Simulated scan of single mutants.
Amino acid sequence: MWNRFFFAAGLLGVLSACRSTALSLDSDKDPAAPYLVVLGTAQDGGLPQMACRQPCCEAARRDPARRRLVTSLLLVDPRPAPESGSDSGSSSGRRWIFDASPDLPLQVERARGHGGPALDAPGRPELFDGVFLTHAHVGHYAGLIQFGREVYGSAPVDLIGTPRMTEFLRTNGPWSLLFDGGHANAVTLTVDQPYELADDLRVTALKVPHRDEFSDTVGFLIEGPTRAALYLPDIDKWNRWERPLAEVLENVDLAFLDGTFHGPEDLPGRDMAEVPHPFIVETIEALADEPAPLLNRVYFTHLNHSNPAADPASKAAAAVRASGAHVLEEGARFAL
C-alpha cells in the first residue's frame, strides 16, 4: 500500500475519500472545489511533429481536431487564497501549471478563464502561481523562456522543482536570465515531502527512473479535498521503479501515466532500448490481473506522434477503452 512508502517519513495519512470505480468529468458537482484541466497530451514534439510526413502527422495538419499539444496539466483552486499563503493578485482563484511545454503560449490561452490574473491590469503579472517541473527534457521546460524579457517579461513566477532541477535552471543560460531579470523565483522541493498549497491541497514529488542528463525526474502526487491524482508523463519501464505500479494506483483516483508508445511497432527501425518508456500494452498487461478499478483510473498521456492510440478511431485506442483504461483528452476537467 502507499503508506508502506510514506508513513515512515510521516508524509501522507490514509486517504479518507472513497475511491470511485467509474471516474467521470464531474467537477461541476462542486464548482468551488479545486480541479485539474488537461492542457496537452502529446510527447515533446507534439502532433503533428516537425517535418513528419507520415499519415499520422499529415492527417493532423489537415484536421485541427486531431492535433495534440505537448503534455501539460493545470491545477486550479477557485477559492480565496489562504491568509497565510502568498497573494498572487489573481482575480478568480490561484492556479499552477505542471510542466512548461514548447506549446506554452497556446496553453496559456487554453487556461484562460481558469483562475489567474486580470490581464487587462497594468504590468505583467505572473500567469501562474507556480510552475511544477518534472524534469529537464525539452517538452517539459522549454516553454519557460516565454516568461523572459524577450516575450512576456513576467513578474517573478515560482519555478518549483527538485534541487537539481532548480540549480540547473539557475546556473545555465538562457534559463538563468529568468532569475537575473527578475522573472522567476526558484522554489525547491524535497522528494516525498508534501508541498502545501492549502490545508487540503498539496503536491508531492515522487522520484522516478528516466534519462537524467541535466536534472532528476519526478512525477507528482496531487492531493485535493476529496481526490488524489498522479501526474507521471515520463518514466522508464515499470520494473525499474522501486514502487509497484498497482500499489501506487490503489491510493489515487486518477493516474495520468506515460503512454508515449503503444508498442514497439511505433518506431520501426529504432532500438527501443534507447527510449525505454513503458508501452501502453505493457501497462495494461501489468494491471490486467488487478481489480478492474485500477485500470479505470489510468489515463495515458505524453503520446508520441507515431502512437496509433492518439487517433480515437484507431484499433489501438479501441483496445485501450476495452481494457477499462483511457487515452487522455485535451480540455478534460477533473474535480479534486
Rank of each mutant, 00 (worst) to 15 (best):
A136Y: 12
G130L: 08
G130F: 11
A142F: 15
G139W: 00
S154Y: 10
F128V: 04
A142Q: 15
L119T: 09
D120L: 11
L119R: 12
S154I: 10
E126Q: 15
D120V: 05
A142V: 00
V138S: 14
G148P: 07
V151K: 01
F128D: 08
A121Y: 05
G148V: 07
V151Q: 00
G143L: 04
L144E: 11
A142W: 15
A136I: 13
H137Q: 12
G130I: 06
F147C: 03
G130Y: 01
F128N: 08
G148I: 05
T134Q: 01
L119S: 09
P122V: 11
E150H: 06
L127Q: 03
G130W: 00
F128T: 05
R124A: 08
S154R: 10
G148C: 05
P122F: 08
F132C: 10
H140Y: 03
Q146T: 12
A118I: 04
D129E: 05
H137K: 09
G139S: 05
D120M: 12
D129H: 01
H137V: 12
F147K: 00
H140Q: 14
L119A: 06
L127S: 04
A121N: 13
Y152I: 00
F132H: 02
F132E: 09
F128W: 06
I145Q: 15
H137D: 13
Q146M: 09
